[in-house]
């Protein structure tokens, strides 16, 4: 069990350390490490967690770290109390690299931040973060989130319609994500 907590700490420490590009890039990293690599969560559970993290107060990165920390420990068969410790460990670990780095920056490095080396590094990072986000979306397009045509044609078609609705209302009409999630939740309740 200690090993599990150490792994959880280390994983979220790395996510905090390399989490360039904001909340969504972090979501891609959590997906890569926690779901794809360690299988602590299923893709479906992960999707639910992202939904809840998006529609509750606070930064998405912290929300999802707290939630993933809790669920990973519960899924490993431990009690709620250990789950709470898991969420503490994950949130602490994801913030720790920021803490050290920001203090160093505010102390010494503020003047180097426009240094060409830093700018060059970011010229490479920025396009890659776009790829990270695209991969996160592609990985989530699976049978767990959409069902499959063979298994349940009705659910699959409705899921695709919901996806199209949410995509267009966010992209074209800039609708509030929470309203989108609410409407789609109601649609699910009625249609499934």
């Amino acid at each position: 069990m200690i090993l599990l907590f150490l792994r959880l700490f280390w994983t979220f420490f790395l996510i905090g350390l390399f989490g360039f590009g904001g909340g969504y890039a972090m979501i891609s990293m959590i997906q890569g490490e926690i779901v794809t690599h360690y299988h602590w969560l299923t893709m479906g559970e992960f999707t639910d967690i992202v939904a809840i993290s998006q529609s509750t107060p606070g930064p998405i990165g912290i929300n999802s770290a707290t939630y993933v920390g809790y669920t990973s420990i519960i899924n490993a068969g431990y009690s709620h109390a250990w789950g709470v410790l898991g969420s503490f460990v994950a949130s602490f670990a994801v913030v720790l690299p920021s803490f050290v780095l920001m203090i160093l920056i505010s102390k010494f490095l503020l003047k180097y931040y426009t240094h060409p080396a830093v700018e060059n590094t970011f010229a490479g990072l920025r396009p890659a973060v776009v790829g990270l986000l695209a991969a996160a979306a592609l990985l989530l397009m699976n049978a767990e989130n959409f069902s499959s045509y063979a298994e349940s044609p009705w659910q699959f078609c409705i899921s695709v319609a919901i996806f199209a609705f949410a995509f267009i209302s966010q992209r074209v009409y800039k609708m509030n994500p929470i309203h989108i999630l609410l409407l789609c939740g109601i649609a699910g309740l009625i249609l499934f």
Partner: peptide, 18 residues
Amino acid sequence: RIFRGIRPAVVALIAAPV
């Protein structure tokens, strides 16, 4: 059922900002 409706929407909310 609610979350079955929400899941495809979450995927869209991640795909849209790409």
